[in-house]
């Protein structure tokens, strides 16, 4: 079967992504040390989301692999989000 093509990702790409991840981490620490209250944690979580997108798409090769994997990951995350939202209908409203 079609085992032939595997993209080799360069060390440089990985290095740059790592750098971005570390900068983002430090930034999220910085922003939460300033006293923004709830906004700080919202920003920190958004940064965490951004970081996980980087890990998913480059470290885990979703960007280079068949689109099916990316679709599945998005599908699973959508299911999780809906479950969370529906659960919160019982608490937030």
């Amino acid at each position: 079967m079609e085992n032939s093509e595997h993209k080799i990702v360069s060390f440089k790409t990985y290095g740059l992504v790592l750098l971005a991840l570390i900068v983002l981490t430090l930034f999220s620490v910085y922003i939460t040390q300033l006293d923004f209250g709830n906004l700080g944690i919202v920003v920190a979580l958004s940064i965490a989301g951004l970081k996980s997108v980087l890990v998913f798409s480059i470290f885990m090769h979703l960007l280079y692999d068949k689109k099916m994997y990316a679709l599945m990951v998005v599908g699973v995350l959508v299911v999780m989000t809906i479950v969370l939202i529906i659960t919160f209908l019982d608490y937030g409203y």
Partner: peptide
Amino acid sequence: DIIWIFLFPLFYLI
């Protein structure tokens, strides 16, 4: 790694 990326702000940065 991804799980830790979320655990970190939820526990340490809150």
